[in-house]
Design a protein around this nucleic acid. Structure first.
Length: 413
RNA sequence: GUGGGCGUAGCUCAAUUGGUUAGAGCGUCAGACUGUGGCUCUGAAGGUUUGCGGGAUCGUUCCCCGUCGCCCACCCCA
């Protein structure tokens, strides 16, 4: 028997309605902020991600699904920001329109060990605004993220924000950390000792208690930020306050991907266990240039759809309450019902029938368990009278109608 | 990638210190007098015989090893 690839999931019809709900909310909410949908390939040149996420990023080093084809190394995309930027540059959108807002919904791939809220194929709903450095945009995007969550029926989430500063500030922060931690690296946990080499900023958000203590003593705060970055961050928080978005400034918040600059944020939810980030994002003012485009600052974020679904209070279930179920009794009625089905469908009425030759009782049970609103019975009597029997499954009432009267009755729903 | 737990019908779980035909509930299907669902009752199907492959044993679903899968945590991240 064939099996799913580890870390992938079949989304069966029963679960699809929950997905559709989330997607529909996203498609309704993004346009309010003038974000336009963009659809991009699932595979890209692997080098795109090496360049954008950083050679040292775990995602690049260990988690990419690589495909070797001829002399090219391709990768299933582990995230979409790099692809959006690639597309923005490749299609000369910087020249055509300069500032642009995009949103996307789609699958991402990372070869991690699966656990709750973590899959190898997972789905992002995200957006990117490219071409402006204004702090108001950062605030708008955080408030959009918050709005989306509310629309998704998610509550109790926590938004943490921080500023990493411009590239010079990031370098400064790296140096501060190297200097102040250099003497007692041995006191850091095993992971942090490795981070010290390649990914030193991440020591700031280590969960290890003793590391936390050491980091707390350093009292980093936002001392590494230059005047311009401090000003930027202050404006971001000011606008967030104006918009009534609740957030926590967390100066230990660092993101794992290289491209982030200045504002970063992460949205977590206590209902999730270890993988508690349901969404995250931030500024990436250098990425467009770094990938060969013009100098365009940008900001964006993404939600993990699976994680959002885990904490969404609205558990919709698929019911066929718009379906009309036709029950033919006998061979002649079965033929006749094909005409009726066709007619109903032409009128835009969802209609189905029993294909198993069940008894009336069995077919009624079937109709009931599907949750249909109407059943239509066609038997010998109805054939003779050229009518059908329409039964309202909720009220139990039924009446005998002619064909046209039936269509008229049902179109009203 | 590292550690731990688990793996018995479609689902949730049982199965006495390893001992004869592996059980239940739910679900599915069928029936309960003529063409009518939900509740109830009755019955049936469904496990290539316990993820897979080895091993120890007179014998194992139960013990050991390997493997695959799932889950949880670490890590990472959405």
């Amino acid at each position: 028997m064939f099996k799913r690839i580890t870390g992938t999931k079949d989304i069966l019809p029963g679960e699809v309605s929950a997905w559709q709900r989330i997607e529909e909310i996203a498609r309704n909410t993004f346009p309010l902020y003038n974000y336009k949908e963009i659809r991009l390939p699932l595979i890209e040149e692997a080098a795109l991600f090496n360049r954008s996420l950083g050679e040292e990023a775990e995602v690049v080093k260990k988690q990419m699904f690589l495909i070797q084809r001829d002399h090219d190394t391709l990768a299933l995309r582990p995230e979409a920001t790099a692809s959006v930027v690639r597309s923005y540059i490749e299609n000369s959108l910087d020249k055509v329109q300069g500032f642009a807002k995009f949103y996307y919904i789609g699958a991402m791939f990372r070869a991690e060990r699966p656990q709750r809220g973590r899959l190898r194929q997972f789905h992002h709903i995200g957006c990117e605004a490219i071409g402006s450095a204004q702090p108001q945009l950062d605030a708008e995007i955080i408030s959009l993220a918050d709005k989306l969550l509310k629309n998704f029926s998610v509550s109790g989430h926590r938004i943490r924000i921080n500023s990493l500063g411009c590239p010079d500030d990031k370098k400064k922060l790296t140096q501060i950390l190297k200097k102040s931690l250099g003497d007692n690296t041995s006191k850091l946990c095993q992971d942090c000792q490795e981070r010290f080499q390649g990914n030193i900023l991440r020591i700031l958000d280590c969960k290890n208690e003793s590391c936390k203590e050491i980091v707390a003593k350093l009292d980093i705060g936002q001392k590494h930020l230059c005047g311009a970055c401090i000003g930027h961050f202050r404006q971001v928080t000011t606008v967030l306050d104006m918009l009534g978005v609740e957030y926590i400034v967390d100066d230990h918040l660092v993101r794992g991907l290289d491209y982030y600059t200045r504002t970063v944020f992460e949205i977590s939810h206590p209902g999730l266990g270890a993988q508690d980030a349901i969404g995250a994002g931030g500024r990436y003012d250098n990425l467009v240039k770094q990938l060969g485009g013009s100098d365009q600052p940008a900001v964006g974020f993404a939600f993990g759809v699976e994680r959002v679904l885990l904490v969404s209070a609205d558990k919709v279930q698929g019911v066929s309450d718009k379906l009309v179920y036709i029950i033919p009794l006998g061979e002649e009625a079965r033929q006749e019902s094909m005409i009726l089905l066709n007619e109903l469908r032409q009128q835009g009425i969802c209609a189905d029938t029993d294909y198993l030759g069940k008894s009336l009782k069995g077919a009624m049970r079937q109709a009931d368990s599907m949750g249909v609103k109407y059943a239509v019975i066609i038997g010998d009597n109805e054939l003779k009278n050229k009518t059908v029997m329409l039964k309202n499954m909720k009220s139990g009432e039924q009446k005998e109608l002619g064909r046209t009267a039936l269509v008229k009755e049902l179109s009203g729903n």
